[in-house]
Design a protein around this nucleic acid. Structure first.
Length: 559
RNA sequence: GGGCUCGUGGCUUAGCCAGGAUAUAGCGCCGGAUUUCUAAUCCGGACGUCCCGGGUUCGAAUCCCGGCGAGUCCGCCA
């Protein structure tokens, strides 16, 4: 409804501008603390028309006519600002729309198919607290895009033939594989040992080179060894992701682009078109925009990560309308080189979402060096802490209840803490903050939802529709206005690919609901207000559940 | 050395792309509200050179230039 209000403000302002004889290509409409929407365009017109901005604002405002039943209630001039306020119609329509659309309230006009790739961690160990920043951002984006109407396919691009996997495969023959451990953790153990060994005896790396050659040629024995390594790691990674409500529709193994000939085709086309040339025996794409050219085939004829990635991106581009990649900041250069090649080949480029690194207080993480905190460790500890928190707050409930509630509370807390931070901010992992349940995070939002459910459970039923016009309390109106912003937020998050704005909205919505809860008693409300307030609680419940769903966070009905 | 990103109260952070009204919120700190629809709540208070210096503008946290600091990348690794 907020979007419709904005459109109404735009057209109203535009026609007033025409009537007053001004013209501009930008209406400078912004959200404001002083009104529901404000325009500061009088300032801009002032120099052009050699008039005082206050006079311009007054002139424009005097030409504004608001039709009957408009979403705009009134217009006020404050200094040079023109302030617009929502009408009762706006508030009523918001409630009607939520009742009508229920869980699909907040959908947008996204059209077409999106392939979004996220996580895609190398299968050489478990996911760590850095990888899951990728997973949470990617999964939330996928949910946002679905919410606004896109058909979304989520992919994990699994590197099953790179040098690091060769090292894992080599390590599995050389070191003992711990059968007791979760498979991805056991893979990390042998991988770390292998890297130590390779550091101590650099000559051994010839064995790795040899394996790389064989896998490129499709040597059957070698394919088996690489597959075993990859599958053990991916199985563990998948189960960690499942714990966090994260699902991939498809795992795409990079080896398929070598086996299927896509890589060879792409290389041949690049060579024949003259876009790539052989330098020192290696096929290279000149990159005048960058400091450095890009090697796409080694002098020993093997392909590189970026070569396979090019084939993968062409494959994706042929299968959807938008390609989105969620990548760590270390991929900035290589991904822009990849885009450069795709661009000169006339292939649709991916939209790339970059997130900055998560480090430990003692420095950056490294799977190879064994310096990392695994996602499983984090989830275990957070769940333990969540159980303690539920026990502290609901001591009279049975253990079954406490365990059942602590799970979504813990997972929600982890997801929210990650997604609330803007991706371009580098972060340092901190146990104390990760295990802090007193701050305003997912549990705060889940709690608001549980409160709404609790009220509804005590009523004799939710009405099919209500008369919202009796909801005139300050907190009630503020809550309805917040509910009205939902689709505006999801659409903005989708078009800017910024999931954190949904997280911030969810917190604000929960705050609005809590204020309403405090100020407007529902069950003991006078008869003329009772039904309307129950209806408003139902609307809040619907939108709180929806926004939590978009964030991939479960919404318990009691906690 | 070059590229990219970040720098906002003690700590974490929104706003920056599309410049505007008292700079957002959380943690922590101080004080208040509970015979309740679940207090994982609500209300109030203290805490700021928006890294520094120039510039553009009627107006700069936001745009431009120059510094400083942090992270990251600059492999025929992935």
């Amino acid at each position: 409804m907020f979007i419709k209000f904005k459109h109404a403000v735009e057209s109203t302002l535009k026609s007033a501008l025409d009537t007053a004889g001004y013209s501009t290509d930008n209406l400078y409409i912004e959200e404001s603390a002083h009104s529901d929407l404000a325009s500061s365009l009088s300032f801009r017109l002032a120099s052009e028309y050699k008039q005082s901005p206050m006079i311009i604002a007054d002139t424009i405002a005097s030409k504004i006519t608001i039709p009957e039943n408009s979403l705009i209630d009134r217009v006020e001039v404050a200094g040079a600002y023109i302030n617009f306020f929502v009408s009762e119609t706006f508030l009523n329509n918001t409630i009607y729309e939520i009742f009508k659309k229920q869980g699909s309230y907040g959908a947008g006009h996204g059209k077409g198919k999106v392939i979004i790739e996220h996580t895609s961690a190398n299968p050489n160990g478990p996911l760590h607290v850095g990888h899951i920043r990728n997973s949470v951002i990617g999964d939330t984006l996928a949910r946002i895009l679905k919410k606004v109407g896109y058909e979304v396919e989520v992919q994990y691009y699994a590197n099953d033939m790179g040098r690091q996997i060769a090292i894992v495969a080599w390590a599995l023959d050389r070191f003992e594989f711990n059968q007791q451990k979760k498979t991805d953790h056991a893979i990390a153990d042998v991988y770390i040992q292998a890297n130590q060994e390779l550091r101590d005896n650099p000559d051994l790396s010839l064995q790795i080179d040899n394996m790389m050659q064989k896998i490129e040629l499709g040597d059957e024995e070698m394919v088996k060894r690489f597959d075993r390594a990859t599958n053990l790691a991916i199985a563990g990674i998948t189960s960690t992701l499942k714990r966090m409500n994260i699902h991939h529709d498809r795992f795409v193994y990079e080896s398929r682009f070598v086996k299927g000939g896509d890589v060879a085709d792409f290389l041949r086309e690049l060579e024949e078109s003259g876009l790539a040339e052989t330098i020192d025996g290696a096929l290279t794409v000149p990159m005048p925009e960058f400091d450095k050219d890009l090697v796409i085939r080694r002098s020993n004829n093997t392909s590189l990560y970026v070569t396979r990635d090019l084939a993968y991106h062409r494959w994706k581009a042929e299968r959807c309308d938008r390609v989105i990649d969620v990548l760590g900041a270390d991929h900035k250069l290589i991904s822009s080189q990849l885009c450069y090649v795709l661009r000169v080949c006339g292939i649709k480029e991916p939209e790339i979402v970059i997130f900055e690194f998560v480090s430990l207080p003692e420095g950056s993480m490294s799977t190879r060096a064994g310096k990392f905190i695994s996602a499983d460790d984090l989830l275990d500890q957070v769940n333990t802490q969540a159980l303690a928190e539920v026990t502290k707050r609901r001591p009279k409930t049975d253990e079954d209840f406490r365990k059942r509630i602590s799970l979504p509370v813990g997972i929600g807390a982890v997801r929210y803490d990650i997604v609330k931070i803007s991706p371009e901010k580098a972060t340092t992992f901190d146990w104390e903050s990760a295990l802090d349940f007193d701050k305003l995070g997912a549990p705060f939002i889940q709690y608001s939802h549980a409160r709404a459910c609790s009220i509804l459970k005590k009523t004799s039923g939710v009405p099919d529709s209500i008369d919202p016009s009796v909801l005139t309390g300050e907190a009630e109106i503020a809550l309805v206005k917040e509910l009205a912003r939902f689709s505006h937020v999801t659409n903005a998050a989708a078009s800017n690919l910024k999931p954190h704005i949904v997280a911030i909205y969810a917190r604000k919505l929960a705050e609005s609901f809590n204020q309403f809860y405090r100020m407007s008693p529902v069950l003991s409300a006078p008869d003329d207000l009772l039904e309307a307030r129950i209806g408003l609680v139902e609307c809040a419940r619907i939108v709180l559940a929806s926004v939590l769903d978009v964030l991939g966070i479960d919404a318990p009905e009691s906690m």
